[in-house]
Simulated assay, not measured.
Amino acid sequence: MLELLLALWPLFALIVAGFYLRRWNFPNEAFWPGAERLNYFILFPALLFSNLARAPLDNPALKQLALAVMLGLGIGWLALLLMRRLRGWPAARFGVFTQGTLRFNTYLGLAAVGSLFGQPGLTLAALMLALMVPTVNVLSVWSLTAERGISLRSLLLPIAKNPLILACLGGALINLSGIGLPGGSDRLLSLLAAASLPLGLLCVGAALKPEELGGEVPALAWSSLARLVGMPLLAWVIAQVLGLPAMETTVLVLFFALPTAPTAYVLTRHLGGDSQLMAGAITLQTLLAAASLPIILMLLG
């Protein structure tokens, strides 16, 4: 337990630091949007690209892991569709609950996996992201626009332009080609990647909005329970059924136990969803994850 806490507390310390730095207006308000864009378009893609370019794609557990990821997302999505039918949610709320249940904080996930398992864990996580990011993005956009409809082009174009997806695809292609990362390019990517996770966690903290927690407490509570307890339990059951090895099981459960992504707020506001409810869900889940993640990982051993 002590080893687990030692691995995780620096991550949440960076989130808290980001929250207070923005409240203290340091370095200034204009810094944070620029930092988020730098990380999203350059630093974080460099991390994913370099890990997938060097990943051992012949790992026999990868097919099972991919199946586990898609089963988990698929079952979660079917449960959300059933709840929407029973509760009559409009798209503005359905999109929030979809993102609050299925989306995940990628920065926190990779930082936690790196702290616990090092490079082998990061490689597994990068491979999972290659499946999870496009799937979750499609489901999120569809759920927010379900009532007014959206063309296939409008649905898939943002996915095709997503820098994280492009980085995963490029890294996998480099890996399969056997070219590798010659001429010091591996060192360049490593330097860029090293800056990604600390900056990402600071930006996560800067995006928290505690003032939005006073709204719909029951909705926020059950959404947090579904994401932080229900989804990791589902992932664990799937891992047991498929017989995943220990590290693959832990990485799978960890990613399904992460709080929802701060970028969900931007998408919700852009597509006309309930952005206030989304901001509350992001904040509450991130705060609760400081307690739920160590407990879940401790139970996993």
Rank of each mutant, 00 (worst) to 15 (best):
A35C: 14
L152W: 12
L21S: 12
T123W: 04
L191E: 08
G171N: 02
K161G: 04
S50M: 04
G76S: 07
A172W: 14
K161P: 02
S151E: 13
A207H: 06
A167K: 13
P56C: 01
A194T: 00
M247C: 01
P90W: 01
A193Y: 11
K209H: 15
Q99A: 12
S177T: 14
G149K: 09
L173S: 13
L277M: 14
K209R: 15
T145M: 14
L288W: 04
A207V: 01
M1P: 00
G95Q: 06
L188D: 03
T123E: 15
Q99R: 13
V253C: 10
L277G: 01
E216P: 08
L124P: 06
V266N: 07
L2H: 02
P33Y: 02
S177H: 06
R269H: 07
S151A: 10
W32I: 12
L300K: 12
A30W: 13
Q285L: 08
L21E: 05
I75P: 01
A290V: 14
V217N: 00
G184K: 08
A291R: 03
V113M: 04
V253P: 02
G205R: 07
R227Y: 11
L202D: 10
A226V: 13
F256G: 03
L189W: 05
N162W: 05
M128F: 10
L277Q: 14
F12H: 11
C203E: 09
A290M: 15
A126I: 02
F97E: 15
W236E: 06
L189F: 15
W222Q: 09
L300E: 06
L166C: 13
G18C: 05
L234I: 02
T123M: 15
C168N: 09
L155F: 05
I150K: 09
L86C: 11
K63Y: 07
L252E: 06
L80N: 08
W236A: 05
C203M: 09
V138S: 10
N162T: 01
Q276N: 10
A281G: 08
P56L: 09
K63P: 00
F12V: 00
E212V: 10
G272S: 11
I42M: 15
N28V: 00
L208D: 07
A125R: 02
L81C: 08
L110A: 12
A61N: 12
D186M: 12
E211C: 05
L129I: 13
Y40L: 09
V136R: 03
P27D: 14
I174E: 00
N105T: 07
P120F: 03
L228W: 06
E212Q: 13
S224N: 03
E147G: 01
A112F: 01
Q119E: 15
I179Q: 08
P294G: 00
L127G: 04
F41I: 05
E147Y: 01
G74T: 03
G74V: 08
N59W: 09
P33W: 02
L297D: 05
G171S: 13
V69K: 01
L80R: 11
A167I: 12
K209S: 15
Q99H: 08
L252C: 00
W77M: 11
S223M: 12
F12K: 01
S196N: 05
P60I: 07
L38S: 10
P294D: 02
L102R: 02
F97Q: 14
L2I: 11
G100L: 00
G205F: 04
P198K: 05
P158K: 09
T123S: 14
R84G: 13
I238V: 15
L52E: 08
M83W: 15
I295A: 03
A13P: 10
P60C: 11
L299K: 02
